[in-house]
């Protein structure tokens, strides 16, 4: 109970009806929006497990779209998310799918396309009480919750990258809670995900990106 706040028990303040099927869905899509990092033109949602079965009755569809629009879990506009997305010219679709047994019953796979044609794939699980886990990013298995200040770096898989990233973070006085590197195959791209106790400043992100020979992108995606 060390880390459990009284406001985890009385709270969150949220748009109903379900913390896992509604609030959690908003939060997954909010992370997706940050990962897409640009003006979103279209999004395809593939719903797995209980999400696939009950998404209409729980408003999971509106909640996901609300997150893509940048609404928080307590934003009353979530209920009008379809209309708001139409007004902004964002196209969207929802399809039930089966991602297999490796995924939590409340999981969504999102394909998000921005106006400049960039596409991001994000898979997120709603694990209960509105808490989430992002478990896949552009085909790469990852794991983070968005509850810490979170930085995602896409990097070349070459020596010296980790040192460069940690140096930039340390020079800004940021204390790292967790840091993990994920890669599919040696010599290709890899992701570093850093979860920190302090806010990750723009200047830290800029310092990391200042070595394009090592770094492709760096994004802050926390839900805080």
């Amino acid at each position: 109970m060390k880390n459990l706040s009284v406001f985890d028990v009385i709270g969150p303040r949220m748009i109903g009806p379900s913390s896992s099927h509604t609030a959690g869905a908003v939060r997954i899509a909010l992370v997706g929006r940050k990962i897409a990092h640009g003006r979103i033109s279209s999004v395809q949602f593939f719903l797995h497990g209980s999400f696939a079965k009950t998404y209409r009755g729980h408003g999971t569809d509106r909640a996901l779209l609300g997150g893509i629009l940048g609404y928080s879990t307590e934003d009353p506009r979530i209920v009008d998310a379809f209309k708001k997305a139409d007004e902004k010219g964002i196209t969207y679709s929802f399809s039930p799918t089966d991602l297999g047994e490796d995924f939590h019953p409340n999981t969504v796979r999102m394909l998000i396309t921005t106006e400049d044609g960039e596409q991001s794939e994000v898979i997120g699980e709603s694990v209960g009480g509105g808490s989430i886990k992002i478990v896949q990013l552009n085909g790469q298995r990852v794991e983070f919750t968005g509850e810490f200040y979170t930085l995602i770096v896409k990097q070349r898989d070459v020596p010296g990258v980790a040192a460069h990233i940690t140096q930039c973070i340390a020079s800004e006085g940021i204390n790292v809670a967790f840091m993990r590197i994920y890669r599919e195959e040696k010599g290709d791209f890899a992701y570093t995900i850093i979860e920190a106790d302090e806010e990750i400043s723009e200047s830290a992100v800029d310092k990391i990106k200042a070595k394009p020979e090592l770094i492709q992108t760096a994004l802050v995606v926390s839900l805080r």
């Binding site: 009385i10 969150p12 303040r13 109903g16 009806p17 209920v79």
Partner: peptide, 12 residues
């Protein structure tokens, strides 16, 4: 149930 604002206490 109508997607209004509530406080989960302890759950929705």
């Amino acid at each position: 149930a109508s997607m209004g604002l509530i406080v989960a206490a302890p759950t929705a």
